[in-house]
Design a protein around this nucleic acid. Structure first.
Lengths: 348, 348
DNA sequence: GTTAGCACTCAATAAAAATGAGTGCTAATC
DNA sequence: GATTAGCACTCATTTTTATTGAGTGCTAAC
């Protein structure tokens, strides 16, 4: 009963999976008997496949159909790939990326290119730093009743906000506030700015403590914006799900589209989990953290721009996706992003 | 042969269309005979419908089926509505909108709410001004080698950019540059900033003409970004297309999704066409400017924030959309947006 | 251990029949 | 002359039945 995975079984399992990836149809014993080198009759294959089914790698969609891989079967296949692969995708045209220097533009371009290359749906999360520190604060006058407040944090993320002031404020007072805010807040992270410090600063600010509140709100907002929870995420190639009949029926498609549009739970997939950044992660079927993607497979890779800034790229496809291609592409994009930003610090 | 549209025909036509809007099924004579007050037999209705078909308002999908409206029929119906309608949608919760003050957030929220309310796909274009003027320019030092350049234009659209400087620059020089740039450029539009002016400024800037170039580039970028061509557009409720079988088949759906994702041609629909801003525009079927929406109807309304800032809201649905509801909602959102911004100048 | 052979299963496809909503036309009625 | 009842006819849709064929499991022979 409890069979052991021998060499021949392995060959057959791989053949079945690879064939299924191509065709999307259950694959029968006769097909394999012809497809492989090992000259075995369909009957023998049949016995082996029966064993593989018992072992949990294959299954039949119904009594008298060929076999298709189970999630476990896919996983076995993917793990195998991961070991002895060498990327073969030609380098992405880095120039195309380097040309524009707005982070948002780059990410959109990358995710689009990836979707185009792979014919799958893709997503990318904007890089976010682990511990964001305030780098620079600037208040300046726009007119009598309005001030412009600019906050820059690590990674040159800039946030501006217009503050309405009721009573007049002199240029000198603005200067003083600038000095105060910068000396007290620069280099601090969100955690460092505690209530004691805040009331301290407000006291020093005197009349204009309300402006200080406003500035602090802005700081909180920009740092929060860079945190995992409301991570910026871009997607592309949603239409590609219609290439794969198993995902294209109204029910599933509507759910998927909704997920992608609302970006529900995508953050869960794209959070750059462990620092043990071991390359490429693959979620197959039920393993997906997101309900609407239980029929999909998802590949992710984390890219790193240095200074602790990192984000994640993801590819979403059917379970019978071309894992080799997907993984190669992920690896490639990851590398390209790392390279492009090595000597480059683009501002948003 | 050439019948005239009398009162009874009109009642019947309206009945047919209204019924079809509900059911999506071709509607037969017997249904109408029961549905309307005018006590007529199915046979009579049949004759009238036959006339209406000849006149181009109705058609049969196949020989022995009920009638469905033609594009012309829909149009007749919609035009009729437009005349004697009084909006009945309860006011959108303006507070919800007013709370946040980032334009982008507002638009996303509005378009989402609209999609939720109507169960159609919705879109909105960010308000753009016709003639953008520079309002405020600020250069400030981040550190030894970097300057932060902030440009504010009409409508409080803010753009910032970090400039790398090779050689050192003194605080005094920065002050001088600020003065120079502001005195020479404030209040000017893109068209006003010509080559003569540019070389003048550069000359005055002396050593730091390269910084001036950088600043000018930023100005060009921000003003260009606000122009019609790369108008910012937000969409929501793409998943709603799956509610309507006539749009939900893979073919059509994939095209629609692609259009929405890439925002191909949406700008054409949302351009706030004529200043003769006559309320609500409806494109039915073939009238759509976008290929993938030839099976849809599109309603648009232009909103106006004053100062010549205007954008457009749009609703995309099946041809048998609930025009009344859609138009009411458009009217309502338009009004709300106008109201909310009346005393409010949010910064992006 | 391998394979040929055979009975059996079952989704998918095709073909045939039944249904029923709706029409157009004609002749009778108001 | 407008309205209506009645009837034969059309045609998409649904239901039913048959046919096909890929694939399996099992057994017996090699």
């Amino acid at each position: 009963m409890n069979e052991k995975m021998d060499d021949r079984k392995l060959t057959i399992l791989n053949a079945v999976i690879r064939t299924y990836l191509e065709t999307g149809e259950p694959v029968g014993s006769r097909t394999i008997s012809k497809y492989t080198d090992l000259k075995l009759s369909s009957a023998t294959i049949r016995n082996e496949m029966s064993d593989l089914e018992e072992m949990g790698y294959l299954m039949q969609p119904h009594t008298s159909a060929g076999r298709i891989p189970t999630d476990k079967g896919y996983h076995f296949y993917v793990d195998q790939l991961e070991e002895n692969r060498s990327s073969s995708v030609e380098a992405m045209n880095s120039l195309l990326i380097a040309k524009t220097n707005r982070m948002e533009e780059i990410l959109k371009k990358v995710v689009k290119m990836l979707a185009l290359n792979t014919n799958y749906t893709t997503m990318i999360s904007a890089p976010s730093v682990k511990r964001n520190k305030v780098k620079f604060i600037q208040l300046s006058r726009i007119n009598e009743k309005q001030l412009l407040n600019v906050v820059v944090i690590d990674g040159n993320v800039v946030k501006n906000h217009i503050i309405d002031v009721k009573e007049g404020i002199s240029d000198e007072q603005i200067l003083r506030l600038n000095l105060l805010l910068n000396t007290r807040l620069n280099g601090l992270s969100l955690a460092d700015i505690n209530l004691g410090l805040i009331s301290n600063i407000k006291e020093e600010a005197g009349d204009h403590s309300d402006i200080v509140s406003d500035v602090l709100d802005t700081i909180a907002e920009v740092i929060r914006a860079e945190t995992d929870e409301n991570m910026e995420i871009y997607t592309s190639g949603a239409n590609n799900i219609f290439r794969y009949p198993e995902l294209a029926d109204s029910q599933r498609a509507a759910q998927l589209i909704t997920t992608l549009e609302e970006k529900e739970g995508l953050a869960d997939i794209l959070q750059s989990d462990d620092d043990e950044n071991r390359g490429i992660q693959v979620y197959i079927g039920e393993e997906s953290p997101v309900e609407s993607m239980k029929d999909c497979s998802i590949g992710t890779a984390t890219y790193d721009l240095g200074d602790g800034m990192q984000g994640t790229i993801g590819i979403i496809g059917p379970k019978r996706m071309d894992y080799e291609k997907a993984m190669d592409n992920l690896k490639q994009v990851k590398q390209s992003l790392n390279d492009v930003f090595k000597n480059n610090s683009p501002a948003d």
